[in-house]
Amino acid sequence: MKSGFSLDLARPSRRHWLGYLLLAPAVLLIGLIILYPLIVSVDLSFQNVNLARLDQPRRPFTTANYERLFASPDFWNASWVTFKLVVIVSFFCFLLGLGTALLVNNRFRGRTLARLLVALPWAVPEVIAVVIFAWLFDSSFGLMNWIFIKLGLIDTTVNWFSSPGAAFFVVCVTMIWKGYPFVSIMMLAGLQSIPEDFYNAARVDGANAWQRLVNITIPSLMPVLGVTLVLVMLWVFRDFSIIYVLTGGGPLKATQSLSIMTYEQAFGFFRMGYASAIGVVTLIVCVIASRLMMGRAPDNI
């Protein structure tokens, strides 16, 4: 007996259906976990909502959240703080990450231990790292003040978290310490994939260490560098816990990044619509920045 509908996956023309079928659960799950909240967030950003509830009727469409956002000095301040963090932290993460990767890529006694030490901050949970740095930079009983006074660099204690500049510095140092091992690991993987023949040929041509670095190592690392840069930038862009636990965005909003501002508006002031608007703008900036970085990568290879 012939059924009304049958799916013959064995037929060559329908073989690709099997692929779609197998992918379907994962696609559905991604849709549920990523796309649905994203759609809800975009929708909320166009409503005047304080405490949002999914089962409540939709409020009238409004662009008031975006108008208010772009007119808010707090938003531009948070954008500036985020930009400064992204540039400074990414730059130093790369400098330290590349430096340590080049170091532990050499053959020397204790290399395994050195590699372990380089990667160690990456393994430390963010909150624990923050607690360590909060103690190091404690204004009254911290180690840094004690060291600086003993060395004669300062004659009175620095209030690390009461000074906008000092608080920003502490946040940067913590983020760099936490972020550079990732760059280091990625760079090390990239370095190990560069054929030794390139270096031997360069040596025969009389290239010194600096020339080998600039003409062989860096260009060969470019594909890895591009991806790593995007990942580090996105991490700095969205990182919340380090800033929140260390400074809470203060003092005087000196460390208030876009992610901190989003959280504060949503769960501090219960302005879900406004917070969603900040989130959407942050997302768009991240996508554009990533696209620009990734778009440049093939040219550099």
Binding site: S140, F141, N145, W146, I149, K150, D155, T156, T157
Partner: peptide, 8 residues
């Protein structure tokens, strides 16, 4: 006397 206030 280490230059750091330790009692408030």
């Amino acid at each position: 006397g280490d230059g750091i206030v330790d009692q408030f």
